[in-house]
Design a protein around this nucleic acid. Structure first.
Lengths: 334, 334
DNA sequence: CTGAAAGCGCTTACAG
DNA sequence: CTGAAAGCGCTTACAG
């Protein structure tokens, strides 16, 4: 019933715990014969090393903590898949928390992971977070953090992002090239790094092609489908509604698409629409959504590999930022 | 830089570690004054209890292990969200692994979680798994398991499922009631419990309405979108193609939908289509997908709460099965 | 090649 | 009300 321990094995073999421990870890000092005896009894009794005890003793952990705003968001669950795959290959296990995009929950999650003495953390910060002491305290304790997607400058840690500026620039340029003259942007309120960069890309593309940035065409809302509906609704109330929309992400774009169609606005004939992410469901809608592909799975793998490198090497380049390329995927909505 | 320990606090206050420990846990024996001194220094030094050491000592863990076939699958990521939310409320952290639907990886994940001495596990078994000793060993060590969705009879553990039989029965009855005469079923090869139950429901509904089960209308494939495409392709090659399709899940249904539309088969006019799950993207496609709603988030919450009950009470009703109700959601595809 | 001892950071009977 | 001691299950210098 209870877990078998090293002492149990030692007793049964008339050996010391030290010897059993060494045999299990294949220490060169131990005779081959002893090793075999130990291995045999370990297998027979289904001995499983207690990683908790091991961690306490060695002060090393094989767990890495992950904090995302929302697990069920397709982008984040794909990132987590990437993280888990790499962690698995390297013998690590991941502890996953969601902040629900609240500061409070992110703080509590951070403490819980720290208390669990994870080897490091992979964090995508919540939309609400403006105070970063919880993360700074983790760093101060010598636990490395790698930020991804929702990164912030205030924390001195390596970051994995996509080229949001350029992606947005591509998206808006594409709308312009397909003849759109009045291009709106559905973005999120607050100060998300990715939102800022995408908005800068939007504005830069307009400027680059001689268009003015018109404040009434920039709608600040949230990041979900319903925000897209609401944004589209507000745009349709304008005296001169836009003929092109660049949405901050795919859920928002899909919400806008459905709202437009429900209100007899034809996409792409009357309004061209571009999202950001290339979620799996971008290809399910009709017209399929033109969007900016963001390699979610690779973001996870890259962030995890960055963290694992730090853990192996013990050194930390806290100013390192890896920027993954985005790619315009043209489908039916433009 | 290093983590502050109870001994550090004790030294600074000229107290023993025992007293500090008791003060921190608000033990009634300790004077209020001492408690305050301890709390003050703990806060000042950013002391965080080492849960690893605590776990080792108390032989209790606040981690629960979760194994799913695939994190990025929308159904499973929603289940995980439910699990995490409940775990969070109860002060637990979750360790998440994906088996990639392989036996090997599921086994390794199980061992890793066991080695990490999780308090319990929530498992949805892989499609390949036919040998269950890895899970039985966990149970034998006194670690409770709750199975969900992909449950198996061979393991003596509580289970959380949806009423797959009845859901399938509803789906097929609905197709019959909308006038379909030749109803096909896209299912998965292998011996998944859910696949079996849904197929039984499909056959029972046909019988109940006086239809024969025709083997050529049952296509065994996989669980993903491409399997739906392939299944639809094969159905269209039949001499008498079906006028109704019940798919094992939404991804398969969506694949079928897209294939049919790409081949000029009108849905719902020529073929009525019903999925299973009610994934978020069921409402994104046109026509929107008629499907069986399966409360993914609630499955996660229910499974987690079952496990937490076991952990609190210490008793385990291993024959308990909670069946959540499914609900037919009629949309445009029928 | 093997063992005794100390210690990782905690908790908790047992004394006083 | 507080402390000394033992122990959770390991690992690893230090001896022999």
């Amino acid at each position: 019933m209870r877990h078998v321990t090293i002492n149990d094995l030692a007793r049964r073999l008339n050996l010391s715990a030290s010897t059993v421990s060494r045999a299990l870890r294949d220490h060169p000092d131990i005779s081959e014969q002893t090793k075999e005896r130990v291995r045999a009894i370990a297998a027979k009794t289904n001995y499983q090393p207690n990683l908790i005890a091991q961690s306490l003793q060695t002060r090393r952990s094989n767990n890495i903590g992950v904090i995302v705003p929302e697990i069920r968001n397709s982008f984040f669950s794909t990132v987590i898949s990437g993280i888990e795959d790499l962690a698995y290959e390297s013998g690590y296990t991941i502890m996953v928390c969601q902040s629900d995009d609240t500061f409070e929950r992110e703080t509590i999650n951070t403490r819980a992971l720290a208390a669990n003495r994870v080897a490091g953390m992979l964090v995508s910060v919540s939309q609400e977070t403006a105070d970063f002491t919880h993360l700074k305290q983790v760093l101060a304790q010598g636990v490395p953090i790698v930020l991804f997607d929702r990164v912030v400058d205030q924390i001195n840690a390596p970051k994995v992002v996509v080229d949001d500026f350029n992606g947005a620039f591509q998206a808006v340029t594409h709308l312009i090239e397909t003849g759109r003259k009045r291009i709106a942007h559905l973005t999120s309120a607050g100060s998300l790094y990715v939102a800022e960069k995408r908005r800068e890309g939007y504005e830069a593309a307009l400027h680059a092609h001689g268009f003015a940035v018109r404040p009434e065409y920039i709608i600040e809302g949230g990041c979900h489908e319903e925000d897209g509906r609401e944004g589209a609704r507000r745009l349709l109330t304008l005296e001169k509604p836009p003929d092109g929309i660049f949405a901050i992400n795919d859920p928002v774009a899909l919400g806008a698409l459905l709202y437009l169609q429900d209100n007899q606005v034809m996409v792409p004939e009357q309004v061209g629409l571009v999202g950001f992410s290339d979620n799996p469901n971008a290809v399910l809608v009709r017209p399929a959504l033109t969007t900016i592909n963001q390699p979610a799975y690779d973001i996870g793998k890259t962030a995890a590999s960055l963290l694992l490198d730090i853990l192996e090497s013990g050194t930390l380049e806290h100013d390192k930022t890896i920027t993954l390329e985005t790619r315009l995927v043209v489908r039916g909505s433009t």
